[in-house]
Amino acid sequence: DYFTVDMEKGAKGFGFSIRGGREYKMDLYVLRLAEDGPAIRNGRMRVGDQIIEINGESTRDMTHARAIELIKSGGRRVRLLLKR
């Protein structure tokens, strides 16, 4: 199942961390959800969800650093296409 999650940044960021990336020879996944962060309050994202797109850009062969950069580059908002 594919689904989109739109979030607005909180005081401590978006409230999730990721693992994976090209340099680890793996796809990008949601690693952790911060307690009471925007990701957990949104209610749609879960640990283990695969991140397919960040702000419309495919994560295929994307490095971990580039993924972080893209998440931050959207300013106060981020849109993720996830797969569960």
Rank of each mutant, 00 (worst) to 15 (best):
R66T: 08
G48P: 01
L82P: 00
V78A: 08
S58C: 13
N42D: 13
D1I: 03
G10W: 05
M26Y: 04
G20Q: 03
D36T: 09
I52K: 10
D27V: 04
L31A: 15
T59D: 01
V78K: 01
I71D: 00
R19D: 15
R44D: 14
R32V: 10
Q50L: 12
A39D: 05
D61W: 05
G43V: 05
G43K: 13
H64K: 08
G13C: 04
T59Y: 02
Y24K: 15
E23D: 11
M7T: 03
S17Q: 10
V78H: 01
G48M: 05
A65Q: 10
L33R: 02
R44K: 15
Q50F: 09
F16Q: 00
R84H: 15
G37W: 05
R22Y: 03
I18W: 02
G48W: 04
L28C: 03
R19M: 05
T4K: 12
Y24E: 15
R41H: 11
L80G: 01
R32A: 15
H64V: 06
G37A: 07
R79Q: 08
R46G: 11
V47M: 06
S58D: 08
I71E: 01
S58Q: 07
A34W: 09
R22H: 03
T63M: 07
F16C: 01
L28P: 04
V78W: 00
L70N: 09
N42C: 08
K9I: 15
G10T: 04
R32Q: 09
R60D: 12
I18Y: 02
E8D: 09
I40Y: 14
G74T: 14
D36Q: 12
R44C: 12
I71A: 03
R41T: 14
T59K: 01
I68S: 13
M26S: 13
M7R: 02
G43A: 12
M7A: 05
M26D: 15
I52R: 13
K12C: 09
I71Y: 01
I68H: 07
S58N: 08
R60P: 04
Y24H: 14
A67T: 03
D36Y: 07
D49K: 00
E69C: 08
V78P: 01
G48H: 06
G13L: 02
F14M: 06
P38Y: 06
I54T: 01
L81W: 04
R60E: 12
R76I: 09
A39V: 05
N55T: 01
A11C: 07
L81N: 13
S17D: 14
R46F: 12
I71G: 01
S58T: 10
V78E: 00
D1A: 04
R60M: 09
H64T: 08
R60G: 12
R76W: 07
I71S: 02
T63D: 05
R79M: 07
V47R: 07
R66K: 10
K25T: 07
D36I: 05
S17I: 11
I54H: 01
V5Y: 03
K25C: 11
I54Q: 00
G20W: 01
D61L: 08
L33G: 03
L82C: 10
H64G: 08
V47I: 10
D6W: 03
G37H: 12
Y24G: 14
Q50P: 03
D6I: 03
Y29M: 10
R44S: 14
L81H: 08
Q50T: 11
M7W: 05
D1M: 03
A39Q: 05
E69L: 11
A11D: 06
V5C: 15
H64D: 03
N55D: 05
E23I: 00
M26I: 07
V30I: 11
L81T: 14
M62Y: 05
K12W: 05
R32N: 10
G75Q: 11
L31D: 14
Y24I: 08
K83M: 11
A65L: 09
R79W: 04
V30Y: 02
D61Y: 06
G15W: 01
D61E: 12
N55Q: 07
D49I: 00
G37K: 06
G20H: 07
L80K: 00
R77W: 11
I52T: 13
R77L: 08
Y2P: 07
R44L: 14
N42F: 08
A34N: 15
G15K: 01
Y2F: 15
A67R: 01
L28F: 06
R76T: 14
F16W: 02
R19A: 10
F3W: 03
R84L: 02
Y29H: 09
V78Y: 01
E57S: 10
V47A: 12
I71M: 11
D36S: 09
E57H: 14
M26P: 04
A65R: 09
I68P: 00
D27W: 04
D36R: 08
E8A: 07
K9S: 08
R32K: 14
A65C: 06
S58I: 09
G20M: 02
L33T: 05
A39F: 06
G48T: 03
T59S: 06
Y2V: 03
K25G: 11
R60F: 10
F16T: 00
D49T: 02
E8I: 15
R84V: 03
F3K: 08
G21D: 02
N42Y: 09
T4N: 12
